[in-house]
Amino acid sequence: MNIVVLIKMVPDTESRLEIIDGKVKEDRFKYMVNPYDEFAVEQAVQFKEAIGGKVTLISLFSDNASIDTDLRKMMAIGADETIVLRQQEYSGNKPSSNARILSETVKELDADLIMCGVQGIDYYQAATGPMIAHFLGVPHISGVTNLKLSGDKLTASRQIEGGLQIIETPTPVLITCQKDMTKVRFPALKDIMMSKRKPFDNRTLGSEAGNDVQTTECSLPPARGGGVILEGEGPEEKVDKLIEKLRMEAKVL
């Protein structure tokens, strides 16, 4: 089975977030593999181990930072090839443009199954996967928590409110993976080191027009007034204050 896995490099969640002139300062970001995409890699390798075939990884990223170590870890899980597309004006916030580029590369590979994470932890739009499916002209199932292969049919459990939608599909199809779809193995460190012998297929690209909406301004959410101890005469008063804060300020109730 020919499986293509799409990997997005995203800023580490612990990176310092600074906004200057309405723009997020990205030059000191450290990047890592989007955790949702790791599930896709692991599942793809499991299928390959079960019925044979090939797993190709594709990642689209800018040309400045080094992402080799992280991609190598994904390779070491059991992929056969990695294609790295480098674009000078890359932004993680252009799902339409990125989806176009990625689907062009995927088309070359004659894939039976295309997999990626349901969303990136940078922008959480959950858009690129479904868009690629459209550009490839294949159906998609997103938010899958469980994927089984039998013969040439896949059975996917798609997460919906209050339950799961169980869907059967033949290939080709695009699947976006939800958290805990499978347990991602920790590749043997020796394999990671040795995967340096399989060089990546690095390609440079120009920019691609798309219909993405531009962000005009970024700002930090209003300061939480961090760590306020709610005072009160007794439990009743304190609880009242808490509920008020949770409803009005935090808007979580």
Binding site: D12, E14, K30, M32, F186, P187, A188, L189, K190
Partner: peptide, 22 residues
């Protein structure tokens, strides 16, 4: 166990990831 077999307690996976990234 860690470098060849990749067979070690799960908690250490977090430890290693954190040390590497942060």
């Amino acid at each position: 166990l860690v470098m060849e077999a990749a067979d070690f307690p799960e908690e250490l996976q977090n430890l290693f990831n954190n040390l590497e990234r942060n």
